[in-house]
Nucleic acid binder design. Sequence first.
DNA 1: CACTAAGCGGGGACTGTCTCCGTTTAGTGT
DNA 2: ACACTAAACGGAGACAGTCCCCGCTTAGTG
Lengths: 190, 190
Amino acid sequence: MTQVRPMRADARRNYERLLKVAAEAFAEHGEGASLDDIAKRAGVGSGTLYRHFPTRQALLEAAYVDRIEALAVRADELGAELPPGEALVEWLNELCVGTIQVRGMKALLGSAVTDGSAAAVTACGTNMKEAAARLVEAAQREGTLRADIEPIDVLRLAHGVATASELAKGDRSAIRRYVSLLTEGLRPAR
Amino acid sequence: MTQVRPMRADARRNYERLLKVAAEAFAEHGEGASLDDIAKRAGVGSGTLYRHFPTRQALLEAAYVDRIEALAVRADELGAELPPGEALVEWLNELCVGTIQVRGMKALLGSAVTDGSAAAVTACGTNMKEAAARLVEAAQREGTLRADIEPIDVLRLAHGVATASELAKGDRSAIRRYVSLLTEGLRPAR
DNA sequence: CACTAAGCGGGGACTGTCTCCGTTTAGTGT
DNA sequence: ACACTAAACGGAGACAGTCCCCGCTTAGTG
């Protein structure tokens, strides 16, 4: 086993400050926020930032792990409370809405879901995929979800809906319509 | 009337070289291709590029006008050949596929469809929106399209589908499934 | 309290965007 | 042919961002 010696106190301090500042920065400027600027605002050198988080993706993910994790948990809650079809619909709703409300999270969801070679196979992304898989499979067994849809498709489509909704900045109702369209489309052919 | 004096010969030459090179560059490196590099490859200074095309958007659009225009024309062709519902479905199919095949066109479609204040109200984007509107309205009159969908929604959703498909680089069949899901979702509630 | 490796941080190389302005040249009138 | 001028050129350079390297600092240990 990899003997993980605990982080030095200063390292831990910086790590946490960076996360806090990063979350603010992403919220304020979107996923493109300047990394050097985040480092500066956290009062550390850029070297420190890049050592802790080698890529923008890594930082983005670290800043939002809790939300992703919460979403994965939520999937199982809904799965326990509702019939599979409804659980999936409701979860997709929360997923899309959440993704849009938190600037920067859309980018994260997107990258977690590519199958490009260098895809960041992030731990929490995996959680999410597994949670989605459980909902999808249950709904398919029940017959309320098209059979030709894979779990990963659902996540990609959620990303697509979030993207479409973003284009409709001015129209607050768009997201509701787009999510409903997605869930309608997911039902088996008549 | 704005008396448009014809471009000077050298200006026209450069304009055309730039377009040609830009199309290649976008195809090769995606929408993010370096503009200075395009200028260099076209054998002109960057000043010349920026004078002809003040923004990346402008260049992108100029490089793809013909395709956008063709798509608008195609909408009317389909509208004349097929019953409205089918025409819309078929057009969406061609739109999504075309958008994905041509790197950089997705970005263009996206920007043509935002209603943010500074939206580039591009001439050819308008053509496209009008073409879409004709198909959408016909299909709604016929009753084969949900009544709560606006023409612009259809374009945004196409952009969303293209985005989702892009995430599935490895999976050639994804796009078909996603488009079919979109068209299913667009049908009126049962 | 001294030692050492973990950690820091900012200077600097590099890439890209976009503007400014001195220089060049196409088109025109003579 | 030639001179003139407005149009167009082009590249230097200011600026912003990313990311690495390596000499310096400091937390944790015996």
